[in-house]
């Protein structure tokens, strides 16, 4: 118990309390905010839904059905939420090619963010689901990187590797590399569980925990992450290290041995 109470008095505790208070105030404000503002939002929303439905009919309905009810080639989209749309379309996974391999790969996205938002609005109107996170939800400011690391190793590393380099699943499926992936998409992936990835909803992985994970990834596999030891060799562990040791290590040593043992050039016979 002594330890526990010692932990409670974390130096950042005051900050956390303050943040919670601020967040609560903000939430209350949103609830009691002037109604006309909400009215205007609603109009914009229904416009977006209409536009989204048009886009949907052209680009998505052939697989997911005219009204998102799903079909033989694609699952039902009712209740997947705007976050799923933003992730799938934003990372270029959707629309998918007609003949799929083991899993739908990430590729260049073909819709603009505005169009994606409209699509997302339409799909969100089909059923309640996770919504696209706001930047402050995945902002890594004040996140606990160490805790994020623990969460990452417990929940994510088994598929995505220690630092998010990705890894193999069954029958040709794989967990993709998380290097250079927008924090928003990481957040959405945790929320929605795209393809074979399980979801980590807020009920079991609260927003703070997601932030910590994103912060950890940024720290160990971000753009500015140092690799103090030198070349990181893909971050894949002993296999790439072993190959390097054989090819460059032993290779260089054998080349040197050849030089050491070789006969010195003889003077040319005249």
């Amino acid at each position: 118990m002594k330890k526990l109470s010692a932990r409670r008095r974390h130096p950042l505790a005051a900050v956390v309390v303050l943040l919670f208070a601020l967040a609560a105030t903000g939430g209350l404000y949103a609830v009691f905010a002037p109604a006309d503002q909400a009215q205007a939002d609603e109009t914009a929303q229904s416009l977006a839904i209409d536009e989204g439905k048009k886009l949907y009919s052209v680009g998505c309905s052939s697989c997911h059905g005219a009204n998102g009810q799903g079909g033989s080639d694609g699952p039902s989209l009712a209740g997947v939420g705007s976050a799923a749309v933003d992730f799938q379309v934003g990372t270029g996974r959707m629309p998918a090619a007609t003949s799929q391999g083991a899993q739908v790969p990430k590729k260049k996205k073909i819709y603009s963010q505005a169009e994606i938002d409209q699509l997302a609005a339409y799909i969100a109107s089909l059923g309640v689901g996770p919504t696209v996170p706001k930047p402050e939800q995945y902002s890594i400011k004040d996140a606990d990187i160490g805790h994020g690391g623990e969460l990452f190793r417990n929940n994510c590393a088994q598929c995505h590797n220690f630092t998010g380099e990705g890894g193999a699943l069954t029958e040709g499926k794989y967990a993709p590399s998380l290097e250079g992936v927008d924090p928003k998409y990481i957040y959405e992936a945790m929320q929605t569980g795209p393809q074979n990835m399980p979801s980590f909803p807020d009920s079991t992985m609260p927003e703070e925990a997601k932030k910590d994970i994103i912060a950890y990834l940024d720290a160990v596999n971000g753009e500015d992450t140092p690799n103090p030891g030198g070349l990181k060799l893909g971050g894949l562990g002993p296999v790439s290290e072993g190959l390097f040791a054989w090819i460059f290590g032993l290779g260089a040593l054998v080349a040197t041995a050849v030089w050491v043992a070789a006969r010195t050039a003889k003077a040319k016979k005249s």
């Binding site: 526990l4 569980g193 925990a209």
Partner: peptide, 30 residues
């Protein structure tokens, strides 16, 4: 107990398709 939150899990917390790791109540990492 949900390992992420250290709080006990309720059935409604666990969504279809989600993955959660749990440990028995009364255990502490320390």
């Amino acid at each position: 107990v949900n390992q992420n939150t250290k709080e006990p899990l309720r059935p409604e917390d666990v969504a279809v398709g989600s993955l959660t790791f749990a440990m028995p109540e009364g255990m502490d990492e320390h």
